Computed example of a mutant assay.
Amino acid sequence: MSIQWFPGHMAKARRLLTDQLRWVDVVVELADARIPTSSRNPLLHEILGKKPKLLLLNKADLAEPDWTVKWLEKLRSISPAYALSAVTGKGVKQIVPALESMVQQKQAKLAEKGVRPQMIKVMIVGIPNIGKSSLINQLTGGAQVKVGNKPGVTRGNQWVRIHDRVELLDTPGMLWPKFEDPEIGRKLAVLGAIKDEVFDLEELALWMIDWFRLHSPQSLSRYQNSDSDITLETIGIKRGCLIRGGRVDTLKAAQIFLRELRTGQLGPITMDIFG
C-alpha cells in the first residue's frame, strides 16, 4: 500500500520555499529525534541543493538517548547536526554558534573585499507539527522581534530577529506527495505529523502496539494486567473507556494510547533504528 496525498497548501509551500531560498545563507532543517530519517522531507534535498544546512533533531527529550547519540554520529558525516528540545530549551544554545561557524568562511571572504559583516539570514524548514514555532519562541525568549519589509517575505511570512546577528524566516510545515514506504506514513501519523483524520486511529494504534511488542515491550508496561495480552479493549478498560452495555469504546482507547505515546508518557522511544 502506498499513501498518496498532497494538500494544496503544501504544494504552495514548496513553491514559496524554492523562491525564498535565494535570500538565505543557511537552512535549518528540523526533524524529530524519534524518527530522524522518517521525519525528513526527501524533496528538501532536491530543493536545497548545495545550500549550507544545519540539521536539528527536536524532541530529543522524548527519544531514547543512546539512539540519539548514534544518529548524530551518523548524520554528522553529511552535515552539522545537533539534538535539542524546543519545549525544555535543552540544546537550543548550540544553534547560533553553529550558524556563525557555518558562514564564517563566506563572511571572511567578504571582509577581504571590504564588506562589513552582514546579518546571517536563516530559513527554518520541516514537516508539520515538528516544533518550529516552539523553537523560535525559545530563540527569541518568547518576544519575537519582527523585521520590516525584506526580500523573500510573502504574505503570512516574516523575518524574525533571533539574535543580534541572526534573522530567521519561518516556513509552513511541508510533507511530500507520496509515501512509498507505508511504514514511514504510519510513523509520521503515530507521532502526530499527519492529521488524525487521514488514518484509521484504531488500526494505527494496533500497528503501534505490535511495533512496541517487537521493539520495546517495556513501553507497554503501564497497560499490563498480569500476563494478559494488551489490546485496545484492555487499554480501554484500564483507562475507563466504557460505554453502554459495558462495552469498550476502542476509538477513545486508541486516542488515549496515541496521546500518551506522543507526550512521552510511555517513556522515550526511537522508531527509526539501524544496524
Rank of each mutant, 00 (worst) to 15 (best):
T68G: 03
A83D: 08
P80L: 06
H45N: 14
W67E: 09
A83R: 05
E73D: 12
I47N: 08
S79M: 15
K51C: 09
G49A: 10
S85G: 09
N58T: 08
K50M: 08
K53V: 04
L75T: 01
N58D: 07
R76A: 04
K59M: 13
L44I: 13
V87M: 08
K59R: 14
R76E: 03
A81V: 06
D61V: 02
A83T: 04
P65V: 00
E46V: 12
H45D: 15
L62K: 07
G49Q: 09
L55Y: 00
L54V: 10
L54E: 13
G49C: 11
L62G: 07
L57G: 06
L57V: 02
V87D: 02
L62Q: 04
L62Y: 07
W67Q: 13
R76H: 03
P80R: 03
N58A: 05
A83Y: 04
S79L: 14
L72P: 03
A63M: 03
S85V: 11
N58F: 03
E64H: 12
L72W: 02
L56A: 08
D61E: 14
L72D: 04
L56M: 10
L72R: 03
E46A: 13
P80C: 08
K59C: 05
H45A: 15
K53G: 00
K50T: 15
S85Y: 03
K53S: 03
E73Q: 12
L54D: 12
L75D: 00
K51E: 10
L57K: 11
L84I: 09
N58R: 05
R76L: 03
L55I: 01
E73S: 10
A63I: 01
K70C: 05
P65Q: 05
P65L: 00
T68L: 02
G49K: 11
H45P: 00
H45K: 15
L55S: 02
L54A: 10
V87R: 11
K70H: 13
Y82V: 00
L75K: 01
L57N: 10
P80F: 02
L55M: 06
L62P: 05
E46I: 09
S85K: 04
K50D: 15
L57W: 06
A81E: 08
A81S: 15
E46T: 14
D61G: 07
S79N: 09
P65E: 06
A60V: 04
L44W: 15
V69L: 05
P65K: 07
S79P: 00
P52R: 09
D61T: 03
L57Q: 08
L54F: 06
E64V: 13
L84G: 07
W71K: 06
L48S: 09
E64P: 06
S79V: 12
I78L: 04
A60L: 02
H45E: 14
P52M: 12
Y82Q: 13
L48T: 08
A86C: 09
K74N: 11
K51I: 13
S77A: 15
P80H: 04
